[in-house]
Computed example of a mutant assay.
Amino acid sequence: MTEAASAPATPPTPPVRLTDRKRDAIVQAAIAEFREHGFNGTSMDRVAAAAEVSKRTVYNHFPSKDELFEAILWRLWDQSHAEAEIAFDPARPLRAQLLAVMEHKMALLGDGSFIDLSRVAIAEMMHTPERAQALVARLAEKEEGLPRWIRAAQQAGALRTGVDAHYAAHQLHGLVKSFAFWPQLALGQPPLPADEQQRVLCDAVDMFLGFYAVRPPA
């Protein structure tokens, strides 16, 4: 048997479909338009021109501007949380596990595009509370990773029971966002440098475990 015959064949990389390339071009163009012009100042015509596609193509992929904007937020969210589902491991130190979970959250909060688009979203949702409620509900569904980890730690006896996991997760997120999200969104402060991000994460996790951990965190 020759070397060529014995080597396993490498499967070819599937080509990117034209429709997928157009969808990606629309999303990238829309991100730039929303960041520069805000929600009300962005039109599907502008997005189509920036993406160099027809307006009909934009509507084929996204039936409305609302759906296009939400698709952008979900894409940024999914990119940051692609590896965020970390299962609780009773054999590993609590602190190391929780830091790993929260590092993915920090990656999202440090994304300049996400901050800019969050600013646009909040400004728009202040005028349409029903949209805000729907978006917050969908975000809550996507933020299940940390509550799931907390529940597993409670069941293992590592964290205090009798406390709702979503409530505890919201507390921890709040500790981080007070330094790494709200100042950037409301005051235009730059994203935290890497060393400051780590300091905020470590302090927030230590405060959380100092209150909730059943045994001293390692």
Results as ranks from 00 to 15, higher is better:
A71K: 05
D78S: 10
I86L: 12
A51F: 09
S43V: 10
E83D: 15
D89M: 10
V53G: 10
K55H: 13
F62M: 08
V58Q: 00
L108M: 04
E103I: 00
Y59L: 15
G110I: 00
S80D: 14
A50I: 06
K105L: 13
A84W: 00
V101E: 08
D78V: 04
L94V: 07
E52G: 07
M106Q: 02
W74S: 05
A84Y: 00
L76I: 02
E70A: 13
H37T: 07
L94E: 03
F69N: 02
R75F: 02
V47H: 05
R92F: 09
R75E: 13
D111A: 03
A50R: 15
L108W: 00
I86R: 04
R75T: 01
F62R: 09
A87P: 06
H61Y: 14
N40E: 12
H37M: 08
A87N: 09
L73E: 00
I86N: 02
F88M: 09
L76H: 08
L73G: 01
A91V: 12
M102L: 07
E85A: 13
S64Q: 09
E70P: 03
D111K: 01
H61M: 08
A100R: 09
W74C: 12
L73N: 00
S54M: 03
V58L: 11
L98K: 00
M106K: 01
Q97Y: 04
V58C: 04
L73H: 00
A107E: 10
E70W: 12
D78C: 05
A100V: 06
D78K: 11
H61W: 14
A51R: 07
E85T: 15
K65P: 07
D45P: 05
A96C: 06
A84V: 06
E85P: 06
S64I: 09
